[in-house]
Design a protein around this nucleic acid. Sequence first.
DNA 1: GTTTGTTTAACTTCTT
DNA 2: AAGAAGTTAAACAAAC
Length: 324
Amino acid sequence: MPRPGRNSYSEAKPPYSYIALTAMAIQSSTEKMLPLSDIYKFIMDRFPFYRKNTQRWQNSLRHNLSFNDCFIKIPRRPDRPGKGSYWALHPFCGDMFENGSFLRRRKRFKSPHLAQQFAQIQSALAAEQIPMKPADPSLFFQEQAKIRLSALAPGSHIQGYPNINATAFKQPFTIENIMAPDYKGPTMLSNQPLVPPITMGGFPALPNGTSWPGSAYSNCSNIDTCQISHTNSDYPSQFNSACSALKPPFGQTPTLSLPMKPTLQNVGPLPTQHPVPAHSHTGTLVQAAPQAHHHHHHHAVHHGHVSSQNRTLTSTLMSTLNHH
DNA sequence: GTTTGTTTAACTTCTT
DNA sequence: AAGAAGTTAAACAAAC
């Protein structure tokens, strides 16, 4: 028994919301998507707190998966039978924890309809006097998906952004972030968008012999021949014919079956969590939620129309996308 | 029969 | 104080 009146570190509730925990699990995976059972497993392996009361928190977690638009379902491939879908992050969900708090997001991500997204992006680009390319919605989203995916390829560059390569991206969920024993609140979160949300044409090149990560892409060595998804092969025509009819949830609509962010591949796999005896102090040091609230928002995101004077195209777009 | 997923609803906690 | 974000419970359907 631990000392009376005091929990051991490993029994304390980790300072992460279910959304944060789930995002960590998803991003820690090489394919940036996981079935439910593996999300459970990730959490239980690393946080002893969640080895108890599994019924309770797993119900809550499932609620979060369904309820929050930042999580999308990706159908299983036929060659990978099993229960349930894979869960991934919505390609446009952005940095959900850019405020530095893993407990509470500044704003809940709501996914607009794809058609709406397209219109918003289009007008945002128009405001910057930048032509949209490609102009066709379905192709546009395909390319967006590919561009985002390219960030997962180590060493690859994104055309037009010579200073950005895969290893340059900040990692929201590094081992340090997850396990830092002296975690004292907001640290290490990147304000920088992981992938430029818009590209003006051109595909990033992959080094010879490398292939695109992600199960749907694992056989693709050439981006141009890469099919968007086995289940979404009819995506373009569907989009074109029924653009206005698209409705969430994404499970019923053609979606971009792609997780968005690069993550732990530079860090390597997370260490398997030493099966910690429940009362040991040698396990994962998980501290109670920090009480310090550092919230210095450099540029508050306002509702309604946003002046783009001092803002980059990127931030304009992101706020546009995240706005309702 | 259990797991996975959706939904409603009441509740708590945090922000403004 | 009010609203937003997060948690928990619970009923239920569908998939395996």
